[in-house]
């Protein structure tokens, strides 16, 4: 049997050529559906319309925080809890404000009592304060979000407009995302037992409103807008200031940008 099919001359026999052709075709048949599906998905995402004509593929959101403008009033924390039904107990925060006090002996005092929902108290440390400031914190909506990477079931995901969302319906509550978040921005909702975090008020931004924290900030320390479009307050913020992000060495590519940054901020 072997002898019958074996090529009699060296070089490519017609059988072998047709075999190679079939082989190439079957490989193509294996790969092409994958490419087609991926392309199809890309097209679908482009055509995706949410609510009243909001196209996520046309946007890219980010937030700028000007530390030198923050007065630590905590109105953002309050507004966030009210807007998003975050439990009022002082353990669950989508956003919070930290106070940094760097003392003349080199020590750094950081606090955020109750997330600063009722602002801060003017308790004076014993040492002289060298410099001091407030830092608002929230989910950094990372482009390379570690939480999205580790979610075992696809309950945490990045939308085409760059916002990281949680599907409470699908979340199994394993809390791997909470462990993976370098910024402490996630928590387990005590009632739903699913992961929660800042959504940039996704339900507001798709309707053209600013996130609640931005709406409630009295000093415009929070700037919200498109990262890429030219006429955006955020683009101006990025143009006019020296920008830093939190923990850049982790390569999470945050889309929450700070100016007036200090090396003690973590």
């Amino acid at each position: 049997m072997m002898n019958k099919t074996a090529p009699s001359v060296t070089g490519t026999s017609p059988q072998r050529r047709s075999f190679l052709k079939t082989l190439a075709l079957s490989f193509a048949a294996l790969i092409i559906p994958g490419i087609v599906v991926a392309r199809d998905k890309l097209d679908k995402v482009k055509d995706w319309v949410i609510g009243d004509g909001y196209r996520p593929a046309d946007h890219r959101w980010g937030m700028g925080l000007d530390i030198s403008k923050c007065i630590g009033c905590g109105r953002c924390v309050d507004a966030c809890k009210k807007e998003n039904n975050v439990p009022l107990e002082p353990f669950f925060f989508r956003t919070w404000v930290e106070r940094y006090r760097i003392l003349s002996n080199g020590e750094t005092l950081i606090d955020s009592p109750g997330g600063a929902i009722n602002s801060f108290r003017a308790d004076a440390p014993e040492e002289t304060v060298l410099r001091s400031f407030f830092v608002p914190k929230l989910c950094n909506q990372c482009e390379h979000a570690p939480c999205v990477q580790v979610c075992p079931v696809g309950a945490t995901f990045s939308t085409p407009d760059g916002v990281v969302l949680v599907d409470a319906e699908h979340c199994v509550g394993c809390r791997y995302c909470i462990q993976a978040c370098p910024y402490g921005a996630r928590f387990l909702h005590p009632e739903t037992r699913t992961a929660e975090k800042c959504t940039f008020c996704y339900h507001r931004i798709v309707k053209g409103l600013a996130p609640a924290c931005v709406e409630a900030c009295p000093t415009q320390a929070r700037v919200f807008g498109e990262v890429e479009k030219k006429a955006s307050p955020l683009v101006r913020f990025l143009r006019m200031n020296k920008i830093a992000v939190l923990k850049p060495f982790l390569n999470t590519k945050p889309q929450v940008y700070y100016t007036g940054f200090d090396m003690e901020v973590r």
Binding site: P90, F91, L109, I110, S112, G115, Q179, Y183, G184
Partner: peptide, 11 residues
Amino acid sequence: YIYPNEIELHW
């Protein structure tokens, strides 16, 4: 100082 959400130890 711990981040406010970190008070609950999850694992």
